[in-house]
Amino acid sequence: MDDRVILRVGAKILIPFILLFALYVQFHGDYGPGGGFQAGVIFAAGFVLYALIYGLENVKKVLPPQAVYICSALGVLLYAGVGYVTMALGGNFLDYGVLAHDPEHGQHYGILLVELGVLITVFGVMVAVFYAFAGRRRVDT
């Protein structure tokens, strides 16, 4: 990999913007196309690009597999957790209106949290599946 200077420098420049764009997609999902799913995939793509250019071992130093597995479960738990919190506050499951005094604000908070859960799970799953494929050695028959 040492001789591929253009790829390495190019990736180094691109990756911060990819991650930033993922966050833009996440938080701009209320106003334009996008949301947790797309943002999670783009965020994972940043790390996959890093792995492709700098190697799997280096990206695992940044993002250990353990953290990725925790992420993929954490998102689902966050999503369902929002549902249970709304139940505890007297509403229906995933009825965000009770999260704030103004039901409209409650909806905003609920959607923000739920989309965050989707982001975390999708990001974790995409990176974990990539690790699983890329970490497997070729079986020569």
């Binding site: 209320d30 334009g32 689902v76 369902a80 995933l94 609920g110 739920v114 989309e115």
Partner: peptide
């Protein structure tokens, strides 16, 4: 009801929140 300009997000995350949870 939701106060979000993108109806797709409203439907996905709020009206159809169960579906999206299942999807996740």
């Amino acid at each position: 009801e939701i106060g979000i300009p993108n109806v797709v997000t409203s439907v996905l995350a709020s009206y159809r929140g169960y579906d999206t949870m299942g999807e996740t």
